[in-house]
Computed example of a mutant assay.
Amino acid sequence: MERKKLIDRLPVWLRVSVYFTIIIVAAYIAVVVPALDSISFYFGIALLLSFLFLKAEGKPLTSLGFVPACATDWKNFFRGLLIGLLALLTSAGLTIWLNSGRLVFTGRADPIYLLILIFIHLWSSFAQEFTYRGYPFQRLLKSYGLWVGQLAITLPFAIMHLKLNTSITWQQFLMTWLTTGLGSLLYGLCYLKTGKLVLSIGLHMGWNLAQALVPRSPGENKTMLFTLVQNARDYHPLNVLLPYIGVTAILMLFIWRSKTWQANEKSSNS
């Protein structure tokens, strides 16, 4: 009881700051000890921190809404997966067309490798959504409202996508913050509409899985399924950025306006 009172006396912004500070310190440790540099390591830190904070607040881990508990949750996961796949494919198709490229099928659709890829992206998407849209996002949302909750998470989400790369320019950092920030807002919106992380996990997985299979630029010109044939002189980064922004914006509007998602009672997650 005393520990719960102590945690309750700490402002939410301080709890979230401690949470991300420890994760960032862990990331620096992983730079020094490369064997630790994995999504499992970061997830383990986030899981432990979430457990300790929630236990002190008298709440279970499951209150974060990451466990499918009914048929609606599973429907939302698979709907999110399909939407994520289609959204990335649309963005990639526009990018390739604008850059005067074309895809050539490699003929090497290895089903075992594809299953491994599916598992990797399921695990990665689950770990990221738990870490960023779990405890910190939900506590900020409850205490400070929608805009603070959504915008505050975009910064640590961008930092971790940069893998603590100190050699990047401010322009590169701001571009990463913009692109990953839009994704963070999209995944946060999924939670706002359903009260659970299941939809965002599915959408995140679908997007990343399609991204791993469909090359969009000369730097990623070959995947297991396709080779991108393109004149490098015709490539322009804006032709990657603008379709991404447009598709993401349309997707956010669709999810926000759609009546498809059945929101669960958020009182159990607060």
Score class of each variant (00 low, 15 high):
I118L: 06
I118M: 02
I118F: 10
F119P: 00
F119K: 10
I120P: 00
I120S: 07
H121Y: 15
H121V: 02
H121A: 00
L122R: 02
L122A: 13
L122M: 14
W123N: 08
W123A: 11
S124H: 04
S124P: 00
S124I: 10
S125V: 09
S125L: 04
S125A: 15
F126R: 02
F126H: 03
F126I: 06
F126A: 04
F126Y: 12
A127P: 00
Q128G: 06
Q128W: 04
Q128D: 11
Q128M: 12
Q128Y: 01
E129D: 07
E129A: 01
E129R: 01
E129G: 01
F130Y: 13
F130C: 07
F130A: 09
F130G: 05
F130H: 06
T131G: 07
Y132Q: 07
R133I: 06
R133N: 11
R133Y: 07
R133W: 07
R133H: 14
R133S: 11
G134L: 07
G134T: 05
G134P: 05
G134I: 02
P136E: 05
P136L: 09
P136A: 09
P136Y: 01
F137E: 02
F137Y: 15
F137H: 05
R139Y: 03
R139K: 15
R139C: 03
L140T: 10
L140G: 08
L140N: 08
L140F: 11
L140W: 09
L140R: 06
L141W: 13
L141T: 04
L141H: 13
K142W: 11
K142A: 15
K142G: 12
K142R: 14
K142M: 12
K142D: 13
K142L: 12
S143R: 15
S143N: 13
Y144H: 13
Y144D: 09
Y144L: 09
G145V: 03
G145T: 02
G145I: 03
L146T: 15
W147T: 12
W147A: 12
W147S: 12
V148K: 14
V148P: 04
V148Q: 05
G149C: 14
G149D: 13
G149F: 09
